[in-house]
Design a protein around this nucleic acid. Structure first.
Lengths: 243, 243
DNA sequence: CTCCACAGGTCAACGGTGTTGTCGTAAGGT
DNA sequence: ACCTTACGACAACACCGTTGACCTGTGGAG
């Protein structure tokens, strides 16, 4: 029943809910984000969102076709917020690092939205702006077109993929998260050296390293590789790929 | 109510269900994987799984504490299948490449399961074996303990993250996938050079490059960076990090 | 200034979900 | 042959997204 949603242009009445709240798409998106932030990803359901807004759950269907539609609106808002104040500095490595960290942080701030929207191409204004910016940094650094596109693709996917991965981790119920830490401490921390020599030899590092996100490390490795590639390109060897 | 689950050692009775099926943890996991493959991740619910097995939904709680417990078992089974026949060759770069591609391929083979389980630490047999193998390759290559762990973490997360990302893409309904391709062709392919010079300059490459997975490229970049790091370590400079 | 179309809020209901307390029964060990 | 108990079945609970029907008061037209 998609005629339930009235296109923004046709909206005119601002009738308040029983509890005196005047709804709008913006208010709903903002409230949803606040709900996720304050009470965790599990707190976002149509019913809870309705309660938080002071409105009947079914009212939301006057503004969004279904929950997926709502999630996309949230994702769009997220992209906007993440890159709102970014400006290139001219140092391509620093610029890429900053962009990557911002995208990752933006995803982590709103786990559920990140998981749902990571694999989507929206073709909307914010996304287009991001593509243009990143390609600009790479081409400005000296990567020729095809190479810039290849690196762009890997870079964006890495940021989105790690964002979604780490988001899924933070979206876990608290009990499950503690269980994971426990697994590293007890299961992996106590394997005998005879059967699992490498795990036993690095157990201490495993326990401490595995609880944080590996994105910063992966990003640094990415930047290292990109710089290596650029150097080989400048050195004139057409083939920068390891065989 | 965790005393509902009987530890494997204490199991003795093989009482069939009303429909004549003899349950077991293995049968449940296999059926869950089949269900996910055939009907999508949304098709996996305790009730549907029970129906597919020919058993009451609540029977599953004799084998798994909750759905999360079941997901971990599924994830571990996937890891096991992916690495079943892998053997190290002694060439650490080639070994890592092979491991990465296998994990990624394994995720793509079970897209819906991969999306659900990519971010979990199972602490079960297959996963432990995988950790030991990868750490073995890295330490064998000459990476000292802490560095090996850091690289291990980034490597595994990258394989899992890209696996989940690409899986999510293939799991989309056909209509949505075609819509995405359309977006690249029309929206991005037709932006004017005045407003979006970098996109316009690389439009052709964008359209062709963006439809394939970027994991192979990202993996090569990763290996390049790892080799660079190792060389710097061997050269004796303690700090292998770009400043 | 009145009128009335209809945007939009509300209500009730449907069919789904994970999970648990309880009970009956048959399989195994003794 | 007996007893214990593993384990399958059932019913119930509280939640979920979604929709059809209803009602109300707002804002533009005359």
């Amino acid at each position: 029943m998609s005629d339930r949603v009235v296109p923004p242009a046709a909206r005119r009445r601002r009738r308040p809910t029983k509890q005196g709240v005047v709804l709008s798409a913006e208010l709903i998106v903002d409230t949803a984000l606040r709900l996720i932030e304050e009470h965790g990803a599990d707190a976002l359901s149509v019913r809870r969102l309705g309660r938080a807004l002071g409105a009947d759950p079914s009212s939301l269907y006057r503004y969004f076709r279904d929950t997926d539609d709502l999630m996309l609106a949230i994702a769009d808002e997220l992209i906007g917020r993440a890159l709102r104040s970014w400006r290139p500095t001219g140092d391509w490595t620093a610029d890429l690092r900053e962009l990557g960290l911002r995208m990752h942080a933006g995803a982590l701030a709103h786990p559920r939205a990140a998981v749902l929207s990571a694999h989507r191409v929206t073709g909307r204004a914010h996304e287009i702006q991001a593509v243009e910016s990143i390609l600009g940094v790479l081409r400005g650094a000296g990567f020729p077109g095809p190479e810039a596109v290849r690196i762009y693709h890997a870079f964006v996917d890495q940021a989105l993929a790690f964002g979604a991965l780490d988001s899924a981790g933070t979206a876990l119920p608290r009990a499950a998260r503690e269980a994971e830490a426990q697994v590293w401490r007890t299961t992996y921390g106590r394997l005998p050296a005879e059967t699992h020599p490498h795990i036993a030899a690095t157990a201490g590092h495993l326990v401490t390293t595995m609880r944080a996100s590996s994105y910063p490390a992966a990003l640094e490795l990415f930047l290292t590789a990109a710089r290596t590639r650029l150097e080989r390109l400048r050195a004139g060897t057409g083939d920068a790929r390891p065989h």
